[in-house]
Amino acid sequence: MFERLLPLLLLVAPVHAAESVAALLKAADAFRLPAESVRVETHVELYKNDALDKERLYTVYVKPGRRSLVLMKSPSEAGQKVLMLADQFWLLMPQSQRPIRITASQKLLGEASTGDIATMTWSDDYNGVVKDEVDCPSPPADLADVPTPATTHRCLHLDLAQARNGVTYARVELYLDAASKAPIKADLYVGSGKRAKEAWYVARPVNGQPRIMTMVLLDDIRPNRRTVIHYRSIVAKVAPDEFFNPAALVRNPLTDW
């Protein structure tokens, strides 16, 4: 009897695990995005040898279907835009006013990777397994942006692989608080298998709900670099579909939205 059921059990078990991971990722995403369509005001601080080197401001519009539009607002980048439609990317430089189709590798270029700013969910991009349950990792002692919790929590350790082409990181090791499913930490790996960054997530209450309002990225490739992404506001906002057409990047009516 058992021998007859074994093939069936083997078939069912991975499906069950995959569903669990999908649900976990959905729950984790909810700490970052409160709605499917949002406008996010982002303030990015780039530190070099622990000294503030550069600051950048971005407005990000996110819509379902893995659509993101990044408007760069800081004085030195004003007018630049990046559009991401699933695994397709376009860049608009204000000097030329011509949307340029770029590859996934080109999206990684620049000081603050556009993918880190525009991609705020895992559930659409990754699948994987729950590797184990461990004590939640503690942030490095000198990382002032990430408070060390007073008590040790248990974390689910997820090993995620890209489910689609064009995602910023090919593999993610994600640690979620076992009780709340809030993201705590992620190790981000590029296509070559090298760990590129270590991400720490800081939640604080917004309208009574815990939300990830700060993400700290420690750069493995350039160890003296630290990027702190502050989400100044995340509001539900449905920008018109036409603004997510690459040819519409040359138009500028989004300050009304």
Partner: peptide, 10 residues
Amino acid sequence: ATRILGDEWA
């Protein structure tokens, strides 16, 4: 036309 070929080529 522009065509993207994988993550690195266009």
